[in-house]
Design a protein around this nucleic acid. Sequence first.
DNA 1: CCACCGATTGCT
DNA 2: GCAATCGGTGGT
Length: 195
Amino acid sequence: MPSGRILDASFFDRETVAVARDLLGKVLVREVDGRRLWGRLVEVEAYLGPDDLASHSAGGRRSPRNEVMYGAAGHAYVYFTYGMHHCLNVTAEVPGTAGAVLLRALEPLTGVEIMRARGDQGPEARLLSGPGKIGRAFGLTLADNGRDFTRGPLGLSAGSPVPDRKVARSPRIGITRAVDLPYRFTVIGSTSLSR
DNA sequence: CCACCGATTGCT
DNA sequence: GCAATCGGTGGT
């Protein structure tokens, strides 16, 4: 059983890349139908503001879809893509400054049967091995967009810290612009990484 | 209004 | 390698 209190706003109210690094090892908590879904973060990517051409807020773009990126830190930015996937981010930085961390992969901890009920019958370690798969297994929808991670049905708890020697930093994947920026963080050796 | 495309996934 | 599937985005 993972332990640790739910992280408070001060954890997220920092530079996005630092928040991304420190999110590794944290536990994503999801309450659905009164049941708990837990997963340990093993892969994340930072998406910054105007100068990050791969970000939804590149060039200072602002729209109903990405509005949450400009709001308070520690909130959910959920977007719908490829006509079928809901991807989950955690916002960072102070209000007015865009920044978000894409949650790309987790190791399932609790609620595996419920995750499987969404249709994926693959190996347990692969149930949350990609941003689209997290959305499906956790039942995320646009109704979750804007949710506060410090209270309510979505949260992040302390889990266990991941030492630097177990963290790899590399370019982000699945993007076509700014492909060289090293904003992807993974837990070395995890069998639940994406792709 | 229209056409193109994507922070993906799973199958050939 | 490529189809699935549809809202966002930018140009006409």
